[in-house]
Design a protein around this nucleic acid. Structure first.
Lengths: 339, 339
DNA sequence: ACGCGCAATGGCACCGGTGTCAATAAATAA
DNA sequence: TTATTTATTGACACCGGTGCCATTGCGCGT
């Protein structure tokens, strides 16, 4: 029953009594073919169950059908969302997704990635934040002639290679929302320094405060590193303050939830004593109690757009959009201050 | 500065004044080569920055260097852990990881996967649970001559193609732990029916109860689907019981946390009023309050072992181990019953 | 000195597709 | 009717490696 080995284009050609080239034309849907031969060849293909060999195609075309996602982001949900988005964007095409994690702390990331690109030669790569902000990597892709798209926060404003979210505006909106609810003493838990997205988020925070004529109290701004633990310590420091904030904006959900737990440990009620807002809208945020009001980061859309940009450079729509909107998701971790 | 295009094996051969075949021998570390020519060729390779073309190799060897992870599991943390494990197992080899998600609810999963395998022709695939339990898929791999490893719970006991965890024993241990703490009315939130792992976990539960001479109260056994929401509803039903349980064992962490939230909504304190134990040891479990006592599922190890089985069939160690141990992680969601 | 075995290398076809261009047949123009 | 397009198809080299087998050079036993 089982076949000795896969039928090749030669088998099809022989059986259909045409040349390989003609078969090639059929599988590539070339228009210069008589309807008659096309049918005949298609029947043979179906009969013997021929499937073109991607390796051979890749060799002949000097272009394989692999998109790689390069990341150094340890957040599981983020990663899975990106993968899903990229796969959405790739759906219906011949492309497949390869994942390449790199060690953020390794001193030879660049070499590692160069090695990967040279060996695997993906057709294109999606660079996920935060490594997408590394200009050296982008330059490397250029040098190696590898298509790439960088995902990030606005600022990487080179439309051809970029898909961004407008974090600044999103945070401005979220903080304005807190202010509208009546909060005045609003704390900020920052993201790791040295990257664009935390900077943008901080800028949005400052803009919202400024727009409402409020001053940013530096005592209410705590560093964080996007990890749960850093949220816990920042949150703890904040609630132990003599004049504690009535609301906390954390630059991502994990830290927001960390802060929530820290507040609760100190005996505070949420949201009555402290309102909390996060950023990302991970599933986590609706799984905690109270559920977390947060900013939905359009990460899946960004990833889908990035993938489309890579594989269909002619798709005007994909290539026009490079800045995607965020949205505030109201849940139950915010109420007006009770003081 | 930039190269017109990548140097090929022909360039190396010409410059080093040897045949392509000799260069091929050098890059494949063939032993039948004089030290002198090897050095010379290696120098040329380094000089011009030659990297072998994987597509050409794949074509000639009729074997590419891609391992695919096929999954239909929506859990982000699980997925990322598996990916990490597989990549660990692949580290140092020429292999790369491709991800292929499939839609669990789609009626033509098999066709979808067949299409993927025929087109992409990965060297091997790792089947993640729950789709790993689908015998049809395994048979498909056999038919297509594609190496595969199924990850699962014990029962798929075909050592060559399987890497498992002993869920039954792990649950037995966890429930015995609850019993040792003094609990008698212990509830179970099950996983989705029709899969091995929930069955095994349930069996472990029953064994532990039986071993302690306790009877399983069917009113305390609630269905679940491994989702947070199903944990909430099961938990709610349990705490609203007239004679509510003093401890709940949930078949995964998400449901355990759902149950936790349901209990809290009903005004119960955790762990004082209800102790809770989960399964998986996701990061989530240490991020909730109180932190969740749970069973560590050796998923990363399983995935690493699976990858090794695929790429180095000669690795005796990888091929001997197909059953990996779990471990109980004690955190703060369990105390003796206060009644 | 001669034949032999072995180590080191080369030659060439082949893996399974695609690009280029020529060849043929059919259709249209002159 | 014949020259000229135009629509279809084929021949053949090539993409960049590897497998198989032939060839060459050299140390060695006799």
């Amino acid at each position: 029953m089982a076949s000795d080995s896969k039928p090749t284009i030669n088998d099809v050609a022989r059986i259909a009594e045409v040349s390989k080239k003609t078969v090639s034309r059929v599988i590539n849907k070339s228009p210069l073919l008589s309807e008659k031969t096309r049918k005949r060849v298609e029947n043979v293909i179906a009969d013997i169950g021929y499937v073109p060999n991607p390796q051979a195609r890749a060799l002949a075309l000097r272009r394989n059908f692999v998109i790689a996602a390069i990341h150094d982001n340890p957040n599981a949900q983020f990663l899975v969302n990106v993968q899903q988005g990229v796969l959405d964007g790739l759906a219906g095409s011949d492309f497949n997704l390869m994942v390449k994690p790199v060690d953020r702390k390794s001193p030879n990331i660049t070499e590692d990635i160069r090695d990967f690109l040279e060996r695997q030669r993906p057709y294109g790569v999606v660079l996920l934040p935060p490594i997408s902000e590394n200009d050296e990597i982008a330059r490397l892709c250029d040098d190696l002639g590898c298509r790439y798209v960088r995902m990030g926060s606005v600022k990487l404003d080179e439309a051809e290679h970029t898909v961004s979210s407008n974090d600044r505006e999103a945070v401005r909106e979220a903080v304005s929302y807190l202010i509208k609810k009546g909060h005045r003493r609003i704390a900020l838990i920052e993201g790791p320094s040295g990257f664009t997205s935390p900077q943008e988020r901080r800028a949005g925070f400052e803009e919202a405060m400024a727009a409402a004529g409020l001053e940013v109290d530096e005592a209410l701004v705590r560093p964080g590193s996007y990890t749960f633990e850093s949220g816990v310590s920042a949150g703890q420091a904040l609630v132990e303050l003599e004049n504690r904030p009535t609301a906390i904006f954390a630059c991502n959900d994990e830290m927001a939830i960390g802060a929530m737990i820290a507040a609760r440990r100190s005996g505070l009620l949420i949201p009555e004593d402290v309102s909390i807002v996060g950023f990302d809208d991970t599933p986590l945020s609706s799984h905690v109690w109270p559920s977390l009001t947060t900013v939905r980061w359009p990460i899946v859309d960004m990833a889908r757009t990035a993938a489309k940009k890579l594989i269909s450079p002619e798709d005007a729509e994909a290539n026009a959009t490079w800045l995607l909107p965020s949205a505030l998701i109201e849940r139950s971790s915010v109420v007006p201050p009770t003081v």
